[in-house]
Design a protein around this nucleic acid. Structure first.
Lengths: 338, 338
DNA sequence: TCCTATCACGCAATCGATTGCAGTCAAGCA
DNA sequence: TGCTTGACTGCAATCGATTGCGTGATAGGA
């Protein structure tokens, strides 16, 4: 077995032209069944493996789909990656994973790499501030935004109704009589962070009550800040009677801090989590996120687009957007005040 | 700006040959600095983006590194993916993510895809039973095994000393006076599952005590089985006084079940976890796994190999293996018996 | 003045697969 | 027999980048 078997090798062995072999392998109708069979058998014997790089050269684009996310270790993005990977596999595409850590420089680097690889499409969870160059590169191909949204970007968006999530969480607590409801959430320069906070505020507004601005803590969406933010709120003179969290990592941080300080839930404080990680206490009232759904709807849309028109003549239906709605799961970590 | 700018376009504009442009962009010493500068400027103006597919065609291999894992949502594999991704980024390679769900068919599919893409190398966490075809395809290029190990496979292996992990966990409990130590672990057809159980047994053997075979439960490494296995053990007449878990998912399941049944830890039972997920109760005595370390050592090795010799003339040093040692982290979920 | 390094660069083949166009061959029909 | 038609295939160009080999020019040395 030669190191690499090419169409030529098969063609020579069968005394055919490479074109015929290529067409046979592609199941082209203008090739006779008999020839196809001979080719297939020979290919198997030779251990022929197609060269998708060469194919991509000719076709002008590969079968790669790029996924650009801040982090895979985060179970939220991990779930997205998995959903996308499954979509890709089903459609015969391959998933190229890029992790940015929310660094615009890294983001640009990866977008460039994907452009060089002539990726068929790109799914991106954008950083807070994508560079101009990043946007220019994205604009060359098909791309969609996932979860977060770039202000003014002309590409479809697939996301979650974050405002609704926090609105319902907050409303739930309000309906239980809570008023001093603390908020621990992500930074406001992310579209998600801003939406979540808006949801929190909207819940108060709906009741005509002013939101307690002094109980709002926003920062980097990391466990560390969740703990810190909570501690900060807890140590206030007039500490909150309930907490809503607006981020999975933050929820973890809050819960950990609560554990460390031996605070009783819901005795001392009611807590609403964000997301529904399988490993969280099964007692946590939380916001169930349609993570898988959004990933799949995103993947299917993009793939339908890139498989549809051979030439990626720009971005798919620029203004398309799909919003998935989260669900509040009421369990035992929240109770009426008093 | 044309849809795609090629070397030719730049060459024509500058009245040079494409070879010169290519060499200039590659910073080839035989091109004068002046010409290089002109080319670089022109390339930037044109918005030239290299075509790595064409490059791969010519070179015979791409800059793709394949990572084949059972699941990314699992934080353990997620961490591996992240480590590898970072290695790749540093070396200018790209990470192609493939998820098998431990299905040999899917595994083969992905290995084929990576072979077609002429990946520079493949990192695989093999399924319990890789197909023959899978092995044949892997053998064509550079590949390494991660964590799990295929019996008789001729490729380097990067893993964790799983036996040591369970030996120290079990020894810890034995030293606390426990004897009826339950074991909830993964299936034995995985190299990891077998090693872990062996470690558990070795700890008993070291004390000349027979291991309590009837307290051993092995099954699929999922949360669900963790819960089930624990419940099973707990309902025994002579229930164990301590539990070691041999899998992160299993630990999660055990803990959840313990929570549901309102069992006190370590009052009613001592528990040692497997892995150190940040979201676990910070009171859990557990086995800290050098996940990141193993991923990075694996990635650096493979990349050093593929970047070293241009031609991937087979697998890197066939018998190389790197074993990373876990650490027992003693916290509050274990106590002396009595 | 003639010869020979050096330097900077171009020619053309090559990588492997794909595809528009054209050619071959045999059967069918008048 | 001569022409048409359709079924199969082959030729050769093409995709974009890379690279071995060769060439012209300039400069320095004899």
């Amino acid at each position: 077995m030669r190191p690499t078997v090419t169409l030529r090798d098969i063609a020579r062995a069968l005394d055919l032209s490479t074109s015929t072999v290529a067409r046979a392998l592609a199941d082209n109708p203008q090739i006779s069944e008999q020839t196809k069979a001979r080719v297939r058998i020979s290919a198997a014997e030779f251990g022929y493996v197609a060269n998708s790089a060469a194919r991509a050269t000719r076709r002008g684009h590969s079968t790669l789909i790029g996924l650009i996310i801040p982090d895979v270790q985060n179970e939220f993005y991990g779930a997205l990656a998995k959903g996308l990977a499954q979509c890709c596999e089903k459609a015969g595409y391959q998933l190229l994973l890029a992790i940015t850590e929310d660094e615009p420089v890294s983001e640009e680097h990866h977008v460039r790499g994907l452009t060089e690889a002539r990726a068929a499409g790109i799914v991106i969870v954008p950083s807070p501030q994508p560079s101009k160059e990043t946007m220019a590169l994205l604009a060359r191909g098909s791309w969609v935004q996932l979860i977060r949204r770039i202000a003014g970007a002309e590409a479809p968006w697939f996301g979650i109704d974050e405002a609704a999530a926090l609105r319902s969480a907050t409303a739930h607590l309000l309906s239980l009589g809570h008023r001093r409801i603390g908020y621990v959430g992500g930074m406001l320069d992310l579209s998600t962070g801003a939406s979540r906070l808006a949801g929190y505020q909207a819940a108060f507004a709906a009741l005509g009550i002013p939101a307690p601005e002094h109980l709002i803590r926003t920062g980097p969406p990391r466990t560390h800040f969740g703990a810190e933010g909570f501690r900060d709120l807890w140590l206030l003179e007039n500490r909150p009677t309930a907490i809503v969290t607006a981020g999975a990592r933050l929820t973890a941080g809050v819960l950990e801090q609560i554990g460390q300080m031996a605070i009783k839930v819901p005795g001392d404080i009611s807590v609403v989590g964000y997301g529904d990680a399988p490993w969280w206490s099964s007692n946590l009232t939380t916001i169930g996120l349609p993570v898988r759904e959004v990933a799949i709807s995103c993947g299917e849309y993009l793939l339908r687009h890139v498989t549809g028109k051979q030439v990626s003549d720009g971005t798919p239906a620029l203004n398309y957007e799909a919003v998935h709605t989260p669900t509040l799961i009421v369990r035992a970590s929240t109770k009426a005040i008093g």
